[in-house]
Amino acid sequence: MSVRSELLKGILDGCVLAVIEKETVYGYELSAKLQQLGLDDVSEGTIYPVLLRLQKNNWITGEMRASESGPRRKYYTLTEEGKEALAFIRSEWGKLAMPVNALLKGETDGGDD
């Protein structure tokens, strides 16, 4: 497993919540959105354990509906608790990202990417 996907693991819940906050999505859509954003080295299937965990926490709810074009899809929406959780994750990430950025930027000159 790459360093990047190791790092992403801890914050993936927050990323998924942030996507769902913007709009109601189903699984395939969600993984496509994450990939478009550049988070392309998590395998697509990784979102399902995450979605299940978020449902268990009551941060999102899923509703199974048939779409007009045929496929049956489960659409996910953020709950009130989910919004609170996302706000908390955002502030925690902010507290972590700034010092880590400052620290690592000072040390990488011409490091391997």
């Binding site: 189903y26 699984g27 395939y28 993984s31 697509e44 199974m64 496929p71 049956r72 899809r73 489960k74």
Partner: peptide
């Protein structure tokens, strides 16, 4: 929950 998840995974796979 099992059948909902299996359907999600199947639809995902078909789309992929």
């Amino acid at each position: 929950a099992t059948e909902e998840l299996l359907m999600e995974m199947l639809e995902h796979l078909l789309e992929g």
